[in-house]
């Protein structure tokens, strides 16, 4: 997932990673240490990658001005239209699951130019036909100010591209070893495929080596527990 994310980072852009997002942080740093050395990288509260001096307020104000080119969000539920649910599953008044809440995701899905949605669990309960509660809609009517929105959805099984005109996710690439039948079994909506859909390039030896050294050390400064375990050859 980190390699798939790294390939979406463009040199020279301003890229931000928010809270509870070690996989995007790893991917952005991998890109920064390889093809995107001139990217401005912002990682929430990271001692080396957090330029702000006035709490998260300064970050949110900066984001509201549309200054981020690329940002990352997730969802407890994600649907085929790119809607994200970070609030509740089931009847909102008597929910079966309560997620932590949107925490700015209804702004951060609109203003950064491209948003990559990431989810480490690709199952029918996380990828659903229609989310129960819309914290962040995938698309908006023309009278809503929305310079940005969903761009890709990255999971351990595939990468979706968001088609803005039709407001839907289409499979762009399967991860190596994943079949279309398996992907459909793990997804709660009928999959649409890009005509050019293929297999994602596997991480190269150089990418893996960098992930397990420099990226791991930098991620450890903000996600020490994650860095201890997530970069082992057996798991990554």
């Amino acid at each position: 997932m980190a390699c798939a994310i790294a390939r979406e980072v463009r040199d020279g852009e301003t890229v931000a990673v928010g809270t509870l997002a070690p996989i995007p942080a790893s991917g952005v740093l991998l890109a920064h240490f390889t093809h995107a050395p001139r990217a401005t990288v912002v990682i929430l509260n990271h001692p080396d990658f957090w330029p702000f001096r006035n709490g998260s307020k300064e970050f949110y104000d900066y984001a509201q001005r549309g200054k981020f080119d690329l940002f990352f969000l997730s969802g407890g539920q994600i649907d085929r239209h790119g809607n994200l649910n970070l609030i509740t599953v089931g009847d909102h008044a008597r929910p079966t699951v309560r997620f932590p809440g949107g925490a700015g995701a209804a702004m951060l899905y609109y203003l950064p130019r491209r948003v990559i949605v990431f989810r480490a669990e690709h199952t029918p309960r996380s990828f659903v036909e229609r989310v129960d509660t819309v914290a962040s809609p995938g698309s908006s009517p023309p009278d809503v100010v929305r310079p940005g929105g969903p761009w890709k959805v990255v999971t351990p099984l595939c990468t979706f591209r968001f088609e803005r005109a039709q407001a839907r996710l289409v499979v762009e690439a399967l991860q190596p070893g994943v079949t279309r039948a398996e992907l459909q079994r793990q997804t709660g909506f009928a999959l649409d495929y890009d005509p050019q859909a293929g297999v994602a390039r596997a991480p190269s030896a150089d990418e893996l080596a960098l992930l397990r050294t420099r990226v791991r050390e930098a991620v450890a400064r903000i996600y020490p527990r994650y860095a201890e375990t997530a970069f082992d050859p057996s798991t990554s």
Binding site: H92, G102, A106, M107, Y110, V134, A135, P137
Partner: peptide
């Protein structure tokens, strides 16, 4: 004012 948010379920829930 807050940016974004319009069209989300925050309109219904709040």
């Amino acid at each position: 004012p807050v940016a974004g948010h319009v069209g989300s379920d925050y309109e219904r829930l709040r």
